[in-house]
Design a binder for these strands. Sequence first.
DNA 1: TCATGTATTTAGAATAAGTCTAAAGTAAGA
DNA 2: TCTTACTTTAGACTTATTCTAAATACATGA
Lengths: 142, 142
Amino acid sequence: MTAHNHTEQIPSAEQLLLSRGVKPTPQRVVIAEYLLQTESHPTADEVLSAVAQALPVALSRATVYNTLNTLKEAGVIKEVLTEPGRVRYDANITHHHHFVDVKTGKIVDIPSDKVEAIGKLLGDQYKVHGFQVLFYGEVESG
Amino acid sequence: MTAHNHTEQIPSAEQLLLSRGVKPTPQRVVIAEYLLQTESHPTADEVLSAVAQALPVALSRATVYNTLNTLKEAGVIKEVLTEPGRVRYDANITHHHHFVDVKTGKIVDIPSDKVEAIGKLLGDQYKVHGFQVLFYGEVESG
DNA sequence: TCATGTATTTAGAATAAGTCTAAAGTAAGA
DNA sequence: TCTTACTTTAGACTTATTCTAAATACATGA
Ligand SMILES: [Mn+2]
Ligand SMILES: [Mn+2]
Ligand SMILES: [Zn+2]
Ligand SMILES: [Zn+2]
């Protein structure tokens, strides 16, 4: 809590969007800001209700979906599929993995290096019931 | 029809359902048979259109969904999530992984032991663009 | 400043996957 | 046979997401 306004050192959502060639409209900026500060891997609906009150003007469902798709195509965010019927979004675009707590439904990030010895040792704060490796790429013939 | 009925040596879908405590109705049996003989990881719609003509009586959408859910709860099949908005089904219930060919959309099974050294070496018929590890389990606190 | 064009947002309609409902069919036991 | 429980069915419903067409905002140049 300082008496003076120190200049922000954190790279702003606005800068990030500009650097990816996405025009930083107010709607896009608040959505990006929300995703950048949360660790909860929210759905589109969750983004909408979280961000709606943060804007002076109303935010439409269509704009939330448009923006999420735009940000995804621009490489600012990633989709996360953990359960049928709902897509979650993640502003952590580093190569990492996810751990679903089946009790709480929370999805936490697992850094890549943790998974070297897969399924074996994740630290004993995690009780692994199972895991799934999903590859994306190309196979020969078929 | 044949002169003699030879005894089936392949463990039948009917036997499998019985062994899992699921009453083998004609609809359930054809759906299970279809899933057991394919390697394509079909969606509910694909199951419906593939199996509809194989039954003398019409097969309803509701029954396909009911049966897929029943078989999943009985441990006869598993869900596979690879893309938003569609659930795929897999009668291979061994612990294994999946490789999505981004060109063709085909999903092929990768046996567990192949993934020991994850992402590294899958055999050079696979070009890995990326992979995702999805854990299921429980974490401490939050 | 105005005109015009282009991108963005919006409400609500449309679509698509999946679930639910209520009625009809099936099988088995008493 | 009567009863009961289970299963299937058509179609209504729900929910997530996309589409459409109109309204806004923004930029650029005359
Ligand atoms: Mn949602
Ligand atoms: Mn489908
Ligand atoms: Zn994440
Ligand atoms: Zn499989």
